[in-house]
Design a protein around this nucleic acid. Sequence first.
DNA 1: GTCAAACTACGAGGTCTGTCGTACTATGAA
DNA 2: TTCATAGTACGACAGACCTCGTAGTTTGAC
Lengths: 135, 135
Amino acid sequence: MTLDHDQDCPGLLPEPPAAELQLVSVLHALADPTRLRIVADLAGAGGDELNCLAFELPVTKSTMTHHFRVLREAGLIRQHRRGTSKMNTLRTDDLSARFPGLLEAVLTALPRCPKGPAEIAAPAVGAATPAAAAR
Amino acid sequence: MTLDHDQDCPGLLPEPPAAELQLVSVLHALADPTRLRIVADLAGAGGDELNCLAFELPVTKSTMTHHFRVLREAGLIRQHRRGTSKMNTLRTDDLSARFPGLLEAVLTALPRCPKGPAEIAAPAVGAATPAAAAR
DNA sequence: GTCAAACTACGAGGTCTGTCGTACTATGAA
DNA sequence: TTCATAGTACGACAGACCTCGTAGTTTGAC
């Protein structure tokens, strides 16, 4: 995967340029409940930056790092460091330019599912993690 | 996954009802170059039925069976037997009703990728599989 | 009945993914 | 300097996934 390493903005983590976003990669990044929830939360933030811990995902920090990297490398989110935090935003414009209507359709579809943004990966009592629930 | 087994139409293979289509399952089914090509070809057929061998995919028949089943169980396609063949159609209406704009956005995005419908899953020499291509 | 075509079932092999825990780094505050 | 916070790197593991080959089933034609 091609990632921009020559960003002028310091602290910005490498990401694929808008023109090189791959449909399969984007769909794959979206095909996971945890990541779908991250995307939904970012969309709900209305362009505001959110740090990784703001999502309160029912997974460990290392798993979180993994999911955020998948999203960033697929081109769905932008990440840059601020102090000890890493701030995340949706690449709404890039996605709309490259795949018109795709992100909108996914965000529209989200609440129609039994596991909507509010429920996806939300820790039910006694079933803290998807893994624990599956075992 | 819930599959309809009480279809009135004989020869129709079990599939999830429109109201139960899951976004994550649909996205996962689409997040594969071979399946994306199948969907694109079906969309290009304009509602016509296509049998499995009509797609000329660069995989064996058993792999083809696998991909068609993934698409059917996710609710993307409908399959029914006709003689020794199995005919496939896109569940366009069901998908549009449940996830408005999603299929359209994917089909629109498809040609914009380096690997469009014509190229996806076309066997580049020595890089026949997505796994191999990704390395 | 025999045969071919189209597809499925099954098992195997290799890879990818999601998850975790531990140890580590980087940053900023006290 | 010391400490807490936020996140990363790494290794491990189980399970899912993609692929294949072989054998089997179903259907229709001869």
